[in-house]
C-alpha cells in the first residue's frame, strides 16, 4: 500500500469516524451487546456462541423429538424400528449419553479453550503501544494514562485499531471491567493486578459496565470507551494532561471560591488548583465528559445542578453527600465546572 493511498484512506476513515462519533453520541451511550462485536476477540466469542447455539439446538430438538415419539407411541412398548430388546435400548443410552457427548465436548474444548481463548487473552507484556490504568471505585471508574498526568473518570478514550492494555485494579471492593462489544470481562481484585486487551475495529462509543456486585450502586457503575482516530486521541490526551482552565467571568470565579471553601475540594481533585481530594472523581476536565456519575445522567447544566443539589436522589447511596448549598452557590459552582473543558 502506497503512503499516499494509506493517508487518503485514513483521512477518509477519520472523516467517517468523526461522523460516527457524533451519531453515536446523539443516540446515547453506545451499545453493550455481546452480539454486536466490534473487535477480533469479541467477534470470535460471538462466532463461538452461534456455533454452540447451533449444536445445542440440534441436541435439544433431538431429545425433544425422542420425547415426541414417546408420546406418539405411548401405547406401544419398545423402540420404533429397533424392537424391544433391552440391549438395544441400553446401547442407545451409551451412544447418546457417552459417545456423542465425548465427541462434541472434545471439539468444543479444542475450539473454545485452545483457539478462541488465545484471541481473548490478556496481551503479553510489552506488546501494546498503550497501557491504561483503570481503577474500580464505589461507584465510578478512575482512568489514568501512565506516562501522562491525565486522570479522568468513566470515559476511556483509546485510539482506534490499536491494541490497548488495560490494567484493572480496585480501590475498595471487587468490580468487574466489561465492554462486551470489544472483549471479555476481567475482575478487579484486591491485591491483584489483572489485565485485559481492548481493541476497536472502528471509531465509536462502546458502553461498558461493572459486572460484579459491588454494593448499593452496582447498577449505576457504567462507563464509555470512545475509540477515535489516533490524532484525535492524542489531542484529547494532551488536553486531559493539562491542568484546569482558570475560571472565566465573575460567576465562575465565585464558583471556584465556593468549590474550594465548601467541602468539594476535600473529595475532588482539580489539577492546577488547591483541590486535591481523593474520594470522588477528578474534575479537572469534567466539562469534557458526556455524562456524570458513571453514566447515570447526561452532563448538562440542569442535570449538573440537580446532582450538586442532591446526589443521593439521583444515585441513592453513592458516596457524595448533599451539602446544602444555596441556589446561588450551586449555580456558581455549575458555571465554574462547566468551564472545565
Amino acid at each position: 500500500m502506497s503512503v499516499r493511498r494509506a493517508r487518503r484512506r485514513s483521512a477518509l476513515r477519520s472523516a467517517s469516524a468523526a461522523w460516527l462519533v457524533v451519531a453515536l453520541s446523539l443516540t446515547g451511550c453506545g451499545g453493550q451487546s455481546a452480539l454486536t462485536p466490534h473487535s477480533g476477540p469479541a467477534r470470535d466469542i460471538d462466532k463461538l456462541w452461534w456455533w454452540m447455539l447451533a449444536a445445542a439446538a440440534i441436541g435439544f430438538f433431538g431429545a425433544i423429538a425422542m420425547l415426541a415419539v414417546a408420546w406418539w407411541r405411548r401405547r406401544k412398548e419398545g423402540l420404533p424400528w429397533l424392537g424391544e430388546r433391552e440391549e438395544t435400548t441400553n446401547s442407545l443410552v451409551i451412544v447418546f449419553g457417552i459417545a456423542v457427548p465425548v465427541v462434541v465436548l472434545v471439539s468444543l474444548f479444542v475450539v473454545a479453550n485452545l483457539v478462541v481463548a488465545k484471541s481473548t487473552e490478556a496481551p503479553a507484556a510489552g506488546t501494546t503501544q498503550l497501557s491504561i490504568n483503570v481503577v474500580g471505585r464505589q461507584w465510578f471508574w478512575e482512568v489514568r494514562y501512565p506516562g501522562s498526568p491525565a486522570v479522568t473518570a468513566n470515559e476511556i478514550h483509546i485510539p482506534v485499531r490499536t491494541r490497548v492494555n488495560v490494567i484493572a485494579t480496585t480501590d475498595d471492593v471487587i468490580h468487574s471491567f466489561w465492554v462486551p462489544e470489544l472483549n471479555r470481562k476481567i475482575d478487579m481484585i484486591n491485591g491483584r493486578t489483572n489485565r485485559v486487551l481492548l481493541y476497536a475495529d472502528k471509531p465509536g462509543v462502546y458502553r461498558g459496565q461493572c459486572a460484579e456486585l459491588c454494593g448499593l450502586q452496582h447498577a449505576h457503575m457504567a462507563f464509555q470507551v470512545i475509540a477515535e482516530p489516533a490524532a484525535r486521541f492524542r489531542r484529547w490526551l494532551a488536553n486531559m494532561a493539562a491542568p484546569a482552565r482558570a475560571p472565566q467571568g465573575a460567576a465562575a470565579q465565585q464558583g471556584e471560591q465556593v468549590f474550594m471553601t465548601q467541602q468539594c475540594a476535600s473529595c475532588h481533585t482539580i489539577r492546577g488548583t488547591a483541590a486535591d481530594g481523593r474520594i470522588g472523581p477528578d474534575l479537572t476536565h469534567v466539562a469534557d465528559r458526556r455524562t456524570l456519575a458513571a453514566l447515570t445522567i447526561p452532563n448538562t447544566r440542569p442535570e449538573l445542578i440537580s446532582w450538586i443539589r442532591d446526589p443521593q436522589r439521583i444515585k441513592p447511596g453513592n458516596k457524595m453527600p448533599a451539602l446544602g448549598l444555596s441556589n446561588a452557590q450551586i449555580n456558581a459552582v455549575a458555571d465554574y465546572l462547566a468551564g472545565l473543558r
Binding site: 425422542m66 415419539v69 412398548e77 442407545l92 447418546f96 465425548v102
Partner: peptide, 29 residues
Amino acid sequence: AAASMIVVIPSAIQLFAWIMTILTGTPSF
C-alpha cells in the same frame, strides 16, 4: 473447564436413560 465438561457425561447418561425408559415403556401422562 475440562473437568466441567467431564461432569456432563453422567448427567447425559441419566437424561437419556429417562428418555429411553419413557420411549420404550407405555407412559401415561
